[in-house]
Each structure stands twice: as C-alpha cells, then as structure tokens.
Design a binder for these strands. Structure first.
Lengths: 148, 148
DNA sequence: TATTGACTTAAAGTCGGGTTTAAGTTGTAC
DNA sequence: GTACAACTTAAACCCGACTTTAAGTCAATA
C-alpha cells in the first residue's frame, strides 16, 4: 500500500509540512517519488517515521536523528555507533529526569508555602515559620531556597 | 551593597546580556537605576533573580515568570493566583517526568537491542528473537515498538 | 582632562523546529 | 479536455530565548 504525504502525515499524526520539512532536512532518505515528482510513502516508511518519533521523544536533535537514520540504513557495520548514540541519549534522559525531580521538590515546597500563606492570608506565616514547626520534608529545601 | 549588571550576572552565573534581556522583557521591575541611567542591583534583587532561576528550571516561560514576579510584588492579595500558577507548573513537571520515564524504557530496550546485535554482529538476532528468549522486561515494549 | 572599561540602547542575528505563502505541477474524476 | 484537490518548491515568516553588533554614554583613575 502506498500513501501521499498528506495521508502519511495523518497516519503518524503530524502536519504534512512537517514531513516535507523532515525530508528537506534529510531525515527521510528512504522516501521514493512518482515519475511526476510526488512523494510516495510505503508501509515500511511508516516504521521509519515511528523511529523518528521515538527518537524525538528522547529529546534528540533532528541532525542526530538524521545521523542515526543514515547509520541504520547502512546496515550492521554501524551497530557499534548506533549503540553509542542510544547510550548517550539514555544518559541525557536520566540526567533530565534527575533535574526534574529536583525541580519537583522545589515546586512541592512552594505549593505548601502558598497553601499555608493562603490559609493565613499572608506569606509571612510560611516565610517566618520556625524550623521546628516546618514539615520535615521541607526543612532541607528551605535552607537551599532561603529568600526565595 | 550594590552591583552593576556585569557583577550581578557573575553572581547568578548568566551573561550580562541575559539580564538586560530579562529587564527589557519586564522580568526585573525591581531593578533601579543611577542618575546616569545605569542599572543598580541591590542585595534583594539577587533573591528575585534566584526566584527567576528556580521558575525557569521548572520549564516556565518568561512571560509567565513575569506574571509571577508582578503578582509577588503586589503582595498577599495575589497568593491564590500564585498558588494556582505553582500548582499548574507542578502538574506540568509531573507529566514531563512521566513522559521521560516512558522514553527511558524505550531507550533501555534499544540499548539491549544494539548490545545484543553487537554481540552477534547483526541486528537480525535481537530483531527476530523469539518471545520466550526475550528478557522479560522487554516483552511488552517490543510489542509496542514492533518494526522500530 | 583624557583615557579606558563597563555601561546604555535599538536593531539585527542565531538556533531549533517548524508553518505559511506564493507560484506552479500532478493526477484523478467527470 | 477541463476542473479541482492535493501535490511540488523556494523563500519567508514564526516562536522563545538569547547573543551580537554598532553607536554612543557613564564613571573611575592617571
């Protein structure tokens, strides 16, 4: 079965202009053309687009996804490099999750801060609450955030 | 103690141009000027910049940070709105962490996939590995990823 | 007072990831 | 054979978050 750019865009849930843009950026070297120059997407191209979607979700940049696609098209000789790329991306995602966990702790504190402020009608209450009265989970974080 | 834009930039670890940009975008309504028009940062402004840094880490956009700053400067009457903003941002961070956990699972699978491919010299081995031989933690994910 | 380094502004440039526009072409249906 | 929707391209535009540039000003030191 074959698809036009508009049909395939619907299948993968992006705008046709996005697929044309990816093509222009060299991310779709596998897409063929009709005699008239119109893009003809095959079933297997859908799988490639899923690969792109997956790598994009990891936060990978288009130029790196392009590199990955070219390596994958080259075959087994590039397995080592592909593994390296995936490993690096995995590390980047782990780091990002860590950062966000830190950030979440800060937001939890701020949420408590404003809930307490709201209950008392003033930020003075959470701001000046003595260390002993402060919920335990916020004692450390308030030190870090002093004045914030 | 007072600081110029360059000094304060060093203190908070950003480029002076960044602070000027934030000022232009209205994020620094608290910064005063000398008679000659030069920005004069106070100690307390450092705390505001730390607030901005913190909110930025949560992924909040500059225009929303600006809104937050203005509300915070207005005083206790805006506590409810600030709580709402923080709560929404907290939810956004939770969603983002969830997405990244999903993504991490995919990358773990791909890592195993290429490690196995590397060990055998071909992607055919992990690609066609029978369900029974597949490590348990990857059985579900391979179904979702079939062909990827 | 003159120099010098750091400041000022507006405007333009950069980057990533697209979207929109304009002018023209393809392919299908009648 | 003509109409029409959907395709083609290059180029321009958009967004957020800056950075860079250019031309000019301030303020501390010699």
């Amino acid at each position: 079965m074959f698809y036009t750019v508009g049909e395939m865009a619907k299948l993968v849930g992006v705008a046709p202009s996005t697929l044309r843009y990816y093509d222009k950026e060299g991310l779709l070297p596998f897409v063929e053309r009709s005699k008239g120059g119109i893009r003809v997407f095959k079933e297997s191209d859908y799988e490639w687009l899923k690969v792109i979607e997956c790598l994009k979700k990891t936060g990978m940049q288009l130029k790196d996804i392009r590199t990955f696609i070219f390596m994958a098209m080259e075959g087994d000789s590039t397995i080592g490099k592909r593994l390296e790329l995936i490993t690096n991306q995995r590390k980047a995602v782990l780091r990002r999750i860590d950062e966000l966990q830190e950030t979440l702790a800060t937001l939890d504190f701020k949420k408590w801060y404003y809930e307490t402020a709201k209950a008392h009608g003033t930020t003075e209450v959470p701001k000046n609450m003595p260390y002993e009265e402060l919920p335990e989970e916020f004692r450390e974080i308030r030190k870090r955030l002093r004045g914030i």
